[in-house]
Design a binder for these strands. Structure first.
Lengths: 219, 219, 219, 219
DNA sequence: AATGAATGAGCGTTCATTCAT
DNA sequence: CATGAATGAACGCTCATTCAT
C-alpha cells in the first residue's frame, strides 16, 4: 500500500539533522557492540531494534542500512565470535612446539576453557537459535577440525592410538563445554582446576602413555 | 476469507454442539501431544495456541483449563521427556548385574544413545529455552547422578580410578550428546558403531583395566 | 521470536474490559461499514487499521478476528457492493415484462445509472486495485452477463440484430460508466437526462426499429 | 548479509569512481524508462526508489536531481504516454481526407485500439491513481475532444445526426477501452476483429446511413 | 468442563527524502 | 552533476491471555 503521501513529515520537521557520517565498518561495529551488550543483558527477544539504535546512537533506519533484519546482527555476531574463539585457541596451541602433541592438547584445553569462560554469555546468545541447536555450525566444525589436527599429529607420532579421531574430538569439545557449564552453574569456576581435571581425563582417554605411567607410579 | 466465517459455518452447521467431554488426563495428553507435534514441526515460537487447540480439536479456553500459560506445556513436555529418558536408561542399566560396573556403563551408553536418537527432536524443543541453555536442568542433574552412581560403584570395586567423578560423568554425558548430534547431522546414524566408539572412549577415560589390557594384547 | 514474556502486560493492567460481545455478523458489518466510511473519506492507503477499529469501537485484535488482513475488508466490501449492484439492477429489469426487450434495456440503463450514481464513491474504492484494473472481475462479468441476457432476448424476438452481443454489452456498460463519470466530474449530474441520452444511443446502436422510425418521422 | 558490505565491496574494488555524467535529458529518460519497467513489472507501490536508481544505474540522490518526488515520475510518465497516444491517433485520423467523416472515425477506432493494445500495461500504471480514477484527466479530455471534432465534422456534413456529441464520444472512448480490455483478459486479442466490431457498432450508433443501408441490403 | 469473541500493547520493518561531500 | 549514508515517522499484524456464557 502506498505510503508516498504521508512519508517523511518528520524528517522535514526535525530540521537540524547532521549526518554524523562514520566509516561504514565503525558504524557496523557500533551497532553490533550495542546489540551484543543488550542481548546479553536482556536476551535477544526482549531486545528491540529501538533499544539497539538508541544504544548505538543512530536512527532506526541506520540499523537497516547495515543489517537486513534483526537476525542478521545475530549472524554477524556469531561469525565474529567464532572467528575470535578459534583464533585465540589456535594462537595458544601454536605457542607449543609442533612436535609436542600432549602439550598442544593441554594448550588447547586451557585456551578453550579460558576463552569459553570469558565469553560464555555471548556464546549462549549467538548459538542459541542456530541451525539444529548445536548440531552443525561453522564454529563447531572449525573447532572440531582444530582438535582433529592436534590429535592426528599425536597419532602419527605414536603418542596416542585412537580409532575414531572425530568422535574423540567431539567428546573433548563437548566434554569441555559441559564441565565448564557445570562450573559456571555451580558458582565461581576455578579455571586451573577445570583445566587440570579435563587435561587428565582427555589424556587418559587418548591412551596417553604419560598419564598411564603416572597412574601406575602413583599406585 | 475471515476466520470467523469458517468457524461460524461449522458451528452453525452442527447445530447443538455436544460437550465432547473427555477425561482430564486424556484431554491434557491430547493437548501435549498436539503441542509436541507442532513444536517439532515448526518450532515453539512459530506455534500458536490457536494451532495447538485446532490440532487437539478443542476450543482456546480449554487450553487454559489445563495449562496456565504456553510455557507450561513446554515444562510439562520437558518433565515427561526427562522422566521417560531417565527411566528408559535406568531400566537398561538395571538389566546388568549390580556388580558389573563396566557392563552397566556400557548399558548406560547404549541406552542413552538409543533414547537420544529416538527423541532428539523433542529433546531439542523442550530443552531449547530452558534455564541458562544447557547449564542446570532437572534432566541433566538426574542423568549426571545416574552416571555418578554407576561410576561410584566401579570406583568402589576398584575397577576404575578417577579423581573427579562428576567431571567424568559430565564429559560422558556431553560427549555422548555431541557424538550423537554429529552422527545425526552427518546423515544416517549407525547406532551400534556410535555405541562401540563411545564405550571404548569412555572405558579408556576411566582407566578401565579391561580396555588397557585389550590394547596391550592387541599390540 | 518469542513474544511470550512480554505478552499482555496491558490487558491485565486495563482491568475493566467487558467483552461487549455482539453477533459475529453484526460486528463484521460494523467493521465493514466503518472501513467503507473511512476509505471513501480518505482513501484506502491513508486509512489505518487503528482508525477503522476506533470508528467501529472495538480493539485492534477484533479486526483481525474478522479479517485476515486489510485487503480482506476491501474484498468483502467489493463482494457486498457487486451483489447489491447486480441485485438492484436486476430487480428493476424484472419489473418490465419479459417480452419487452427495449423496455428491459431502458430499465437496465436507468437502474444502472441510478445505482452507480448512488454508489460511485464506494465503487471507486472497491474496484481500485482489483485484478488487472477493470479487466476481469466478478461484478463486471455478472453485469455483462445480465446485459447479454437482455440483448439475447431482443435478438431472438427480432427486435435487434447485432453480430457481437458481448462487445455490445461491454460498450453499453463501459459507455454508461464513462458518461456517468463525466457527469459526476462536470458537477451536478441530471439523472433523467443521462438516462435519456444513453437509452437513445444504445437503442440506435442496437438497430432498434423504434428509434430508427422515430428518427425518420422526425426528419 | 548486509547491503553495506556488498555496496562497499563494489565501491572499494572500483577504486576511483568515474563521474559517468550524461546529458540531462538522457539521464531523465533513463530514470523514466527504468521506473516504467519496474512499475509495470511490480506495481508502483511495490517499486522503491532504490530499485529505480539501481535499474538506471545511478545513485539515489540523482533521482532527486531530476524528480522532486516519486509521484513526479508517474506524472512525467503519464504526460509522455498521453502525448504519444493522442499524437499517434491523430496522425492516423489525419491520413484520411478531411471530408470523410466515416473514414476518419474508422481510422480513429483502428488507431486507438492499436495504440491501447500496444501500451495498455503502461496505461494502467500511469492512470491508476490519477484523479478520481478515470473521471477527469488530461489524456481523457484530449481524446474526447479529438473524437468530438470528428463527430462535429460528420454532423455538419449531414452524415450523422446525434443529439449529444459529448456523450457519444464518451461512449465510443470507453466502449473501445472496455472491449479491448475484455479481449486482453480473454487471451490473444485479434485487432482486426476488434476494430471491425467496434466500427460497426459506432457507425450504427451514429445513425450512419451507410451501415443502415448495408443492413437493409443484406436482409 | 468447555467455549470463542474480545482484548491491546508491542515490535519489526519500510522507504521517501535530505544533504554534506 | 552525482553520490549514498543517515534519517525517523508510520503501520500492519501477532498472539497470549481473559472471561462471560
Amino acid at each position: 500500500m502506498s505510503k508516498v503521501q504521508r512519508q517523511h513529515a518528520g524528517a522535514r520537521a526535525t530540521g537540524a539533522r547532521k549526518p554524523r557520517t562514520k566509516p561504514a565498518e565503525v558504524r557496523r561495529d557500533d551497532l553490533m557492540d550495542a546489540a551484543a551488550r543488550l542481548f546479553i543483558a536482556k536476551g535477544i527477544d526482549a531486545t528491540t531494534i529501538d533499544e539497539i539504535v538508541a544504544s548505538a546512537d543512530v536512527a532506526k533506519g541506520t540499523f537497516y542500512h547495515y543489517f537486513a533484519a534483526k537476525t542478521d546482527v545475530i549472524a554477524a555476531l556469531r561469525d565474529r565470535f567464532a572467528q575470535g574463539f578459534v583464533a585465540r585457541v589456535q594462537a595458544a596451541v601454536d605457542a607449543c612446539p609442533a612436535g609436542d602433541a600432549v602439550g598442544r592438547l593441554c594448550a588447547w584445553t586451557a585456551a578453550a576453557v579460558g576463552a569459553y569462560l570469558d565469553q560464555f554469555q555471548l556464546h549462549d546468545i549467538v548459538f542459541h537459535d542456530f541451525g539444529h541447536d548445536r548440531r552443525q555450525s561453522a564454529e563447531h566444525d572449525a573447532v572440531i577440525d582444530q582438535l582433529m589436527t592436534i590429535l592426528a599429529a599425536g597419532i602419527q607420532k605414536g603418542t596416542w592410538s585412537i580409532e575414531s579421531p572425530r568422535s574423540t574430538a567431539i567428546v573433548i569439545f563437548h566434554g569441555m563445554h559441559g564441565v565448564v557449564d557445570d562450573a559456571i552453574a555451580a558458582g565461581s569456576p576455578d579455571r586451573a582446576q577445570i583445566i587440570d581435571t579435563l587435561s587428565a581425563l582427555f589424556r587418559r582417554m587418548l591412551g596417553d602413555g604419560t598419564s598411564r605411567r603416572a597412574e601406575r607410579d602413583s599406585a
